[in-house]
Amino acid sequence: MTVDTASPGQRIPVPPHRDTLARRGSISLSRHPRLRLTLMLSAPLLWLGLIYIVALAALLITALWTVDSFTGTITRSWTLDNIITVVTGSLYQTVTVRTVGVALLVTLIDILVALPIAFFMAKVASPRWQRILVIAVLMPLWASYLVKAYAWRSVLSQNGIFEWLVAPFGGETPGYGLPATVITLAYLWLPYVILPVYAGLERVPDSLLEASGDLGGKTWATLRLVVLPMIWPAIIAGSIFSFSLSLGDYITVNIVGGANQMLGNLVYTNVGAANNLPLAAAIALIPIVIIFGYLAVVRRTGALENL
């Protein structure tokens, strides 16, 4: 195949040198790595810094303001009221615990489901099947989020397919509520977890597994001591997707969550119905703190650098 031009032995045509301005620029750049770095980083950092960090900082500052309830305009006088409300209110504690619980469960389920299927794809399936399986895993991503959530609503309803499947074994549908929310969210984010885990497993050379076998390593020991440490960063990468996407979700819980609400609902209601951006911003601090905590823990394991 000719796609991979890096194959040794293949000739790479190098254009003849011309003393153009571009060439001189190129030379001076290669002599000044710092300059090169600055040029490379300036565009993305300007983008992320100016757009994202400024927006985020502005939002956090808004948490320190209040809103006039009838005109809906923001009054820019400094107060900690919103933050105190959020920290001390029992409502926010209950909902936070519920939301984090759901997000953790979703992440756990996704990892447990992703590991065997990704392992099968990467290490057992033939190249042809590997390709088919990747397509099979990616395809559901294109059936809109909302359509899939409503499909689960139908599956989990009283006389839905789930009930029909488990009834012969004496089971019954969990109905609408937190279990349904966990199932639906785990379903929605599964491809985002399978893909990095699969990519991570692919990077584990088969020879290493064979070496472990040759040295007498049992299958489980090999998996635990050789494979798991190698794909740990990939698992973390996947978990960031499923955890954070669950943490901020407010649509799925509306569709299948029964009467429950999550942090996203509180933020959404305060922005939309109540038009109270300062309080919404204060509530938004909760997931921000949680995510930063999560990233800090993850960083300590060294996974972030290998993300």
């Binding site: 992320l48 985020l56 960031i240 919404a280 938004a284 921000i288």
Partner: peptide, 21 residues
């Protein structure tokens, strides 16, 4: 960290932050 942040923080936060900005 900066690269990961926009996806790591929940969409609703990214959404209202950008909307506000």
């Amino acid at each position: 960290l900066l690269v990961i942040l926009p996806i790591a923080l929940p969409g609703i936060i990214t959404g209202i932050a950008l909307n506000n900005a």
